[in-house]
Amino acid sequence: MRLSACNVSWSKGGVSILENVSLDVVPGEFLGIVGPNGSGKTSLMSLLAGLRRPKSGRILVDGQAIDRLSRREIAKRIALVEQQAETGERISARQAVELGRTPHLGALAPWSSKDDAIVDEALRNVDMERLAARLWHTLSGGERQRLHIARALAQQPQVLLLDEPTNHLDIGHQIGLLQLVRQQKLTAVAALHDLNHAAMFCDRIALMSGGRIVALGRPSDVLSGERIAAVFGIDVDVVHESGGRCHIRYRPPGSPVVEMPVLRRISS
C-alpha cells in the first residue's frame, strides 16, 4: 500500500507547524522520520494516520484521499502507535491487545479462534505473553509500550506508524522492537529520536527541521556531519558503511574533527 503526503501544511493556534511537506512512503519500506523537538514529526504522523486534517494539501492512501475513508476503513489499513496512550479502564494486558481486532469485527464477523491466534502471536512478538493476565495499571511504562506495539500488530495493518516507539524501553527492548518492526511484512514509518537507530534499521530517512523535510534518502546520504550540525547544533563524526548505512559518533563541544574511514563488510 502506498501512503503519500502531498504539499501538506498544518497549523495550531495560528502557529505554522508543517509547511508544504510532500512524502511518498514506498510499499514495504521502513522509513524513519528524524528531527529536533518541534520540527513537526508528531504532527506529520497524525496527518498520515488520518487523525488530523491538513490546512492545505492532501494525504493519499493508494491514491485515494484519506478523508474520504471511514475510521474503520483507515484502521484496517493503518495502525498508529502514539507516544502516550493510556486508559483508566481496569483491563488486562491481553484485553488491551485484543482492541486491535476491533476494526475487523462486526455482526457478521464475531470474535473467533482466528482472532485469539492473532492476539497470541502479537503478544509473543513483543515478549509479553507471560504477562497477558496482568492488569494494565500494574505494568511499567516500558511494558505498556510493548503492548501498544502488540495491539497495532494485532490490527494487521498494511502500514504501521510509530511515534517515538522506543520511549520508556531499555536498550535491549529498543533494538529488539525496531528489529521486530523491520521483520514485519508491511510498510513502516517511525518518528525516531536516536539517529543511530534510524541509520541502523531504516531503508530511508526523512530529516525534518522547522516544519519542513530538508533531506530524504538513504541514511548515509541524509546523515552527513554538516547536515546534523546545521539541524541539531551538535558536532559528530559519521562512519560510512556499505549498503547506505552509517554510524554516528557524537563529539564533545570543541573537540577536533576526525576523518572517518568508509567501513566495508568483509565476507567470510
Rank of each mutant, 00 (worst) to 15 (best):
residue 4 S to P: 01
residue 4 S to H: 13
residue 6 C to L: 12
residue 7 N to T: 00
residue 7 N to M: 01
residue 9 S to M: 05
residue 9 S to G: 12
residue 10 W to V: 02
residue 11 S to W: 01
residue 11 S to C: 10
residue 12 K to I: 01
residue 14 G to T: 11
residue 14 G to R: 13
residue 17 I to K: 02
residue 19 E to I: 04
residue 28 G to R: 08
residue 29 E to T: 15
residue 34 V to G: 03
residue 35 G to T: 10
residue 37 N to P: 09
residue 37 N to Y: 13
residue 37 N to L: 05
residue 38 G to F: 14
residue 41 K to H: 07
residue 48 L to W: 12
residue 48 L to T: 03
residue 49 A to Y: 00
residue 50 G to W: 14
residue 52 R to F: 06
residue 53 R to L: 02
residue 53 R to C: 00
residue 56 S to D: 08
residue 58 R to K: 15
residue 61 V to G: 05
residue 64 Q to L: 07
residue 66 I to T: 10
residue 67 D to G: 09
residue 67 D to N: 13
residue 68 R to P: 04
residue 69 L to K: 11
residue 70 S to I: 02
residue 70 S to D: 09
residue 73 E to P: 15
residue 73 E to N: 13
residue 73 E to T: 13
residue 76 K to C: 03
residue 77 R to A: 02
residue 82 E to Q: 15
residue 83 Q to R: 08
residue 84 Q to S: 06
residue 88 G to Q: 11
residue 89 E to G: 09
residue 90 R to M: 12
residue 90 R to W: 14
residue 92 S to C: 04
residue 92 S to N: 12
residue 94 R to E: 10
residue 95 Q to N: 09
residue 95 Q to F: 07
residue 101 R to F: 14
residue 103 P to E: 03
residue 106 G to K: 15
residue 107 A to V: 10
residue 108 L to W: 14
residue 109 A to C: 06
residue 112 S to L: 12
residue 113 S to E: 12
residue 115 D to N: 03
residue 118 I to A: 10
residue 118 I to P: 00
residue 121 E to K: 06
residue 122 A to P: 00
residue 122 A to I: 04
residue 122 A to D: 01
residue 122 A to Y: 03
residue 125 N to S: 14
residue 129 E to R: 02
residue 131 L to Q: 03
residue 132 A to E: 04
residue 134 R to P: 00
residue 134 R to C: 06
residue 135 L to H: 05
residue 135 L to N: 06
residue 136 W to F: 08
residue 141 G to K: 11
residue 148 H to M: 03
residue 151 R to L: 08
residue 151 R to S: 06
residue 151 R to I: 09
residue 151 R to F: 01
residue 155 Q to E: 07
residue 156 Q to L: 04
residue 160 L to K: 11
residue 161 L to F: 08
residue 162 L to Y: 15
residue 164 E to A: 05
residue 171 I to M: 07
residue 172 G to H: 15
residue 173 H to W: 05
residue 174 Q to V: 06
residue 175 I to K: 04
residue 176 G to H: 10
residue 176 G to I: 14
residue 177 L to Q: 07
residue 179 Q to Y: 15
residue 179 Q to F: 15
residue 180 L to S: 02
residue 182 R to D: 04
residue 183 Q to E: 09
residue 186 L to F: 03
residue 186 L to A: 09
residue 188 A to C: 06
residue 189 V to E: 02
residue 192 L to P: 11
residue 193 H to L: 02
residue 193 H to F: 08
residue 202 C to W: 10
residue 202 C to R: 14
residue 203 D to E: 05
residue 205 I to E: 11
residue 205 I to Y: 15
residue 206 A to H: 14
residue 211 G to Q: 10
residue 215 A to T: 07
residue 215 A to E: 07
residue 217 G to H: 10
residue 223 L to C: 10
residue 224 S to R: 14
residue 225 G to L: 14
residue 230 A to L: 02
residue 230 A to P: 00
residue 234 I to R: 08
residue 236 V to K: 03
residue 240 H to Q: 08
residue 242 S to L: 03
residue 242 S to M: 04
residue 244 G to P: 09
residue 248 I to R: 00
residue 250 Y to M: 15
residue 250 Y to K: 07
residue 250 Y to V: 14
residue 251 R to Y: 01
residue 252 P to V: 03
residue 260 M to V: 13
residue 262 V to E: 04
residue 262 V to D: 01
residue 262 V to I: 11
residue 262 V to F: 09
residue 263 L to K: 08
residue 265 R to Y: 02
residue 266 I to E: 14
residue 267 S to T: 09
